[in-house]
């Protein structure tokens, strides 16, 4: 879905979201009031500069619009792979964005994510995955790595990976798999404005992903292992 279409469907009233070099920032009006919107488009790879611009927006929202929900629209091919980014300490920049989002949560901003195209690995980890509510459009593509690359790196035969991915949600790309593991909550269908309004204001406290992974039988151990460590 094109970003303009998506924004119009999410905010049929009005929005002020602008696209600057594939980074989205602005505000949208819903029937439950105004919300902040940030994200990426055109499969943008997240580099140090991207992380700073997004973090800057989060800090502005915390400062000027206390408690306003933040919607993250995700379309990223992952972190930017470059020597320059590594030289500057890109992991520190992504961690900065993560910490800004955590501060927003702690200060009462609800964090909502909608994957509307690609959501890959480090890029997804650095913002979309920080949300309390993580949803996707049917055409969302969530992954760590495609199977051919995975095969190359693990030196496991591609056929074996393909075969196993038909029965296991654990490593193969796809939103069904991430839903099964608890990493994505639901698929949003039309009308999108209604779906958005439905989750705004939903009370969420702790990270629910392990419980959902267990309920959906995709991650059967994470929940009990963490619980045993905590209780043991």
């Amino acid at each position: 879905m094109k970003i303009d279409t998506l924004l119009n469907e999410l905010f049929p009233g009005e929005h002020s979201v602008i696209n600057t070099d594939n980074i989205l920032t602005g505000f949208g009006m819903t029937s439950k009031g105004e919300i902040a919107v940030m994200g990426t488009t055109d499969h943008l790879a997240i580099g140090v500069d991207t992380a700073l611009i997004l973090a800057d927006f989060v800090l502005e929202v915390i400062k000027d619009r206390p408690g306003q929900p933040i919607l993250m629209l995700v379309d990223t091919q992952g972190q930017r792979l470059s020597l320059k980014d590594e030289l500057l300490g890109i992991n520190g920049y992504l961690a900065h964005l993560v910490k800004c989002l955590e501060l927003a949560r702690q200060q009462g901003h609800q964090l909502i994510t909608l994957v509307y195209s690609e959501a890959v690995s480090g890029g997804f980890l650095a913002f979309g995955m920080m949300a309390d509510e993580i949803h996707t459009l049917p055409q969302g593509k969530v992954r760590v790595m495609n199977l051919p690359a995975m095969s190359r790196i693990t030196k496991l035969p591609l056929e074996q990976l393909q075969e196993l991915s038909s029965t296991s949600a654990i490593f193969a790309p796809g939103i069904e798999n991430f839903i099964k593991l608890g990493g994505v909550q639901t698929v949003w269908r039309q009308p999108l404005a209604e779906q958005l309004v439905k989750v705004i204001g939903v009370e969420t406290s702790a990270d629910q992903r392990r419980q959902n992974g267990l309920l959906r039988q995709g991650r059967k151990l994470a929940c009990s292992v963490a619980k045993r460590v905590n209780a043991g």
Binding site: R143, V144, M150, I170, N177, G183, R219
Partner: peptide, 13 residues
């Protein structure tokens, strides 16, 4: 990578 999806979510957790 052998359990990539679970690993990514685990790191986020």
């Amino acid at each position: 990578l052998h359990e990539a999806n679970a690993g990514l979510i685990a790191i986020s957790e």
